Amino acid sequence: MSESLSPSLLVTNFSIPSFRLPALVSRIGRRLPQWPHAVALTAALNAATRMKVLPADSLELLEGRTFLIEVLDTGGVACFAYRGGYFRPLFSAPDAPDLAFRANLSAFLQLAVRQEDPDTLFFNRALSIEGDTELGLIVKNMLDAIEWPALGPFIRGGRSY
């Protein structure tokens, strides 16, 4: 393998650009059933809980709370609650979720790979956070505390914040 294509260089140079999908994608996405997003997300969150990726003491603070995550440029919405030690999908959006996150796909991807932190995206108006401020801080601190040991360099894109 040539040096220009070595895995370490690919990971180090990996960066997700800010982008917005065409409006057509959102118009179509809003017309599709939304519950599969919530089912998939809660399955992933429950798996992370079982693997002890999410801090148990913080999870207790989520008990009975409802959440909404909206990917603006895809038209996708995932609503869920944390009850009885499990993340559970909600099949309709609550009138007033305890905490709502809204952003374009690129911002959520940048968060996932830790290319950007939530504060930067929020202050750059790329991420909207609405609802209970204290709950928002709890969730932010939970995300910051996650260690990605097996996927470390790839998930972080070779960067840390």
Rank of each mutant, 00 (worst) to 15 (best):
S2P: 15
S8T: 15
L10T: 07
T12L: 15
S15V: 14
S18Y: 15
F19Q: 08
R20N: 14
R20S: 12
L24I: 12
V25D: 07
V25F: 11
S26D: 02
R27V: 03
R30P: 01
R31T: 10
W35G: 01
P36N: 02
P36Y: 04
H37G: 05
H37Q: 13
H37L: 08
H37D: 05
V39L: 07
A40W: 09
A40H: 06
A40F: 10
A48Y: 06
A48P: 04
A48V: 01
K52G: 12
K52Q: 15
V53S: 11
V53T: 13
V53H: 05
L54Y: 06
P55E: 11
A56G: 05
S58Q: 10
L62Q: 04
E63R: 02
L68R: 14
V71W: 12
D73N: 07
T74L: 15
G76M: 12
F80H: 05
A81G: 09
Y82F: 14
G84Q: 02
G85V: 01
S92L: 05
S92Q: 03
A93S: 04
A93Q: 00
P94H: 13
A96Y: 11
P97S: 00
R102G: 13
A103N: 05
A107G: 12
F108M: 10
L111R: 05
L111P: 03
A112V: 15
R114M: 14
P118K: 04
P118F: 11
T120L: 02
L121D: 02
F123E: 02
N124I: 05
L127N: 12
T133V: 09
T133M: 09
G136N: 06
G136T: 06
P149D: 01
L151A: 13
G152R: 11
G157K: 11
G158F: 09
R159A: 08
